[in-house]
Computed example of a mutant assay.
Amino acid sequence: MSGTANRIQAEGVIKNIIREIVQECASRGEGVSETLVAFIVKAVVLEPQNDFQVDRVLASDDVKRLIDLCVRRLLDNKSSSLDTIKMQVYFDMNYTTRDEFLTEHRRVLETRLQPILREITDNRASSKDELESLYRKIVSSVLLRSGLGSPTDISVVREATAALQSVFPQTELGNFLSLSKRDKDRQLIELTQIVTGIRLFNKECGKGGEGIDNLPAILNEAIPATLKEIQQQTDDAIDSSEKFIAVLDTMTTLSQKQLSKDATKHKVQESMINSRQLELYLNILSNDVRQSAHEVEELLSQFKARLDQLKTTIQNKTAVPTAQVYPQFMHLATIWFGFQDEMVLLSVLSNICK
């Protein structure tokens, strides 16, 4: 049998072993993920004392022994090393960098938008009713993409429709329908940004803002609260690890006759490692939240400056060239989307801490 065939066979055996372990744990009332089981299987196989031959396919007796060892380890609720592994697996599965997460988050949002966007860009409306229906879909797409209120809230829809009509009246649908799909997509993005900017500006002027949460205020309250919670958990982890280190130091200085069993010392070491790892992960999360605090501060400064510039541009003028005001509305929207990003990131980081 070729090396490739052996590898495929081995992978199939491992997958079956993982499934059996998951099922066995479930039958004993313990739910475990395949990712965690895979981690445990690898650890057990590589431990020299278990005497598994990693360079050949496992015999049936070895498979049974491996499953038994893994199940026993996974059901040991008093094991600090198991808690450490669970923590590592959970963190690896749920944590990613800011840029990676935001890229994925935006991809998911765009994927969710695709059905309504296709309905718009593939539309061949011609009658009055069809054109009105298309316009309503554009309003809905603007609301969904902007995240400023629900497209099922009448007040929000009315406000968004009024803002859209001011820059893209329904009479423009004919020109829109003649565009290529790419140009339609581009125009929908621009319309979302302009309408979002208009609604944010109107809210600032006290003329609207239905369904728009005060994200800067929410973030300025939530970030310190999250940092406080993380710091408390970090302090607890440090306190625990220092206590375990003190115990280990005491055990080391005792005479051999007085020294506790190696198994006891090993458990203390595992508990200390668990606390240290928790501290490490909490520090990573804390740094991310602090970066969010910095980002929010920068965004707020930009947001206020852009609002002031818009007020200066529009104030006491009956008409303002679109070339002057539209880019400013779009920039205002982009800044707001930054606040939304920080809200999502903070929510994820907070959930990881729980």
Rank of each mutant, 00 (worst) to 15 (best):
V325Y: 05
T264E: 13
A305R: 12
V157K: 00
L102Y: 02
V45G: 07
Q193N: 14
E30Q: 10
A263M: 08
E295T: 15
R98K: 15
A10F: 14
N50W: 03
A333H: 07
L74H: 00
T196A: 09
K137V: 03
L102M: 10
L177M: 13
L46V: 12
V32N: 01
Q269L: 13
S2G: 09
K243H: 11
L46I: 09
T152K: 05
S126N: 12
S79H: 04
I120R: 03
Q256W: 05
S347Q: 09
I154C: 06
K184I: 02
V195I: 04
L102Q: 06
E295H: 10
A263T: 12
R107H: 00
L300P: 00
I18L: 10
P224Q: 06
V167A: 06
T4N: 13
P48L: 03
D308R: 04
S81H: 08
K261G: 11
R182E: 13
L74N: 04
R182L: 11
N214D: 15
R276A: 05
R73S: 03
T96V: 08
L200Y: 07
I40L: 01
A217N: 07
S126D: 08
A43N: 09
N123H: 03
A222Q: 11
Q165R: 14
T161Y: 05
H266C: 06
N94M: 11
K243E: 13
L219F: 01
F91T: 04
L109E: 13
K311R: 12
L332P: 07
K261T: 12
S2H: 10
A162Q: 08
K207A: 12
I154E: 15
K267G: 06
R145V: 00
G206W: 02
D76C: 01
V41G: 04
L173Q: 03
L248W: 04
R107N: 02
L285V: 07
S146E: 04
F39R: 15
L300E: 15
Q302R: 09
I8T: 10
D183G: 01
K64Y: 06
N202S: 08
L310S: 06
T313V: 14
D129P: 00
Q328K: 05
R19L: 14
E132N: 15
L117Q: 13
D235K: 10
D213G: 08
N287C: 08
S2A: 09
A59Q: 10
K265Q: 15
V348H: 08
Q302G: 01
P169A: 02
S27L: 05
H266K: 15
R19W: 05
D83H: 12
L173T: 01
S81E: 15
Q291M: 11
K304H: 10
D288R: 03
P216E: 07
T250S: 14
A26R: 09
T84L: 15
A38T: 11
E297Q: 12
G12M: 05
G208L: 03
Q328P: 01
S33L: 00
L280P: 02
T226A: 14
T322P: 02
V54Q: 14
D153N: 14
G147N: 06
T312G: 08
T4R: 13
L58T: 01
K64P: 00
N50R: 06
I67E: 04
V37G: 02
I238L: 15
Q88G: 08
S286P: 00
K317Q: 12
K15A: 12
